[in-house]
């Protein structure tokens, strides 16, 4: 066992490192959301291809609930800054991105999968919970709120929004999420930043 691995085992419980990690990841997600060049829209207020989702899912896999909090704060900051939604509405809407990060995080922790996608079981967990299911609840929630405030005009537009949201996210979670997990996970673990449980 190397000294860095020994350090990871010693540091149990929530530490200031987790707060710093969450804040900085929220900042990075903010940058990804703001400068995602491929953001396209089918219904108002809903990005059909939204690359930042892949990072939210991956951060959830690596950092557990902290990844979810980072996704939540990142979307509020970037969305308010870019004028996508007003601040009070952002506080409500950003729960969708929190769920996108926490669903795969929960799946990997409850089913004891390896986020480095080492075996068939890990792949199955990522495909089901990281690619297919991660954004479904969030997409329904986000579009429902948009429907209530009139941003989306009807149930027809609601379903167009939900379906395009999820199809776009299947794509980005596959093309961006898989290489990130395969390539960067060993680095995250070596750096001692990987969160094994929900919070620590």
């Amino acid at each position: 066992m190397t000294s860095s691995q020994r350090e990871i085992r010693v540091k149990r419980g929530v530490t200031p490192l987790h707060i710093v990690l969450t804040a900085i990841m929220a900042g990075v997600l903010g940058v990804m959301i703001l400068y995602a060049a491929i953001t396209t829209t089918i219904v108002p207020g809903v990005a059909a291809v939204y690359p930042a989702t892949a990072f939210e899912v991956v951060f959830g896999c690596w950092f557990g609930v902290w990844g979810g909090i980072a996704a939540y704060i990142g979307l509020i900051i970037a969305g308010t800054y870019a004028g996508w939604f007003p601040l009070p509405l952002g506080i409500v809407l950003a729960l969708s991105d929190f769920s996108a990060a926490v669903i795969p995080a929960a799946a990997f922790r409850l089913l004891k999968g390896d986020v480095g996608l080492k075996g068939g079981r890990d792949w199955a967990i990522y495909i089901v919970f990281g690619i297919v299911l991660s954004t479904v609840p969030g997409s329904i929630y986000y579009n429902l709120i948009n429907l209530y405030i009139g941003w989306i005009p009807s149930w027809e537009a609601f379903w167009v929004g939900v379906i395009s949201w999820n199809l776009g996210n299947f794509l980005v979670n596959t093309i961006i999420g898989i290489p990130l997990l395969k390539v960067v996970t060993p680095y995250v673990k070596r750096a001692g930043l990987y969160v094994e449980g929900w919070f620590s």
Partner: peptide, 27 residues
């Protein structure tokens, strides 16, 4: 679209590595 998403991966991996290094410094 697929090509641009792949390009996106190659741009963001350095950013994430830089970020992870900064996490320890800031902490």
């Amino acid at each position: 679209l697929v090509r641009r998403l792949r390009n996106y991966v190659s741009v963001t991996i350095p950013l994430i590595v830089i970020t992870l290094n900064k996490v320890k410094e800031v902490d």
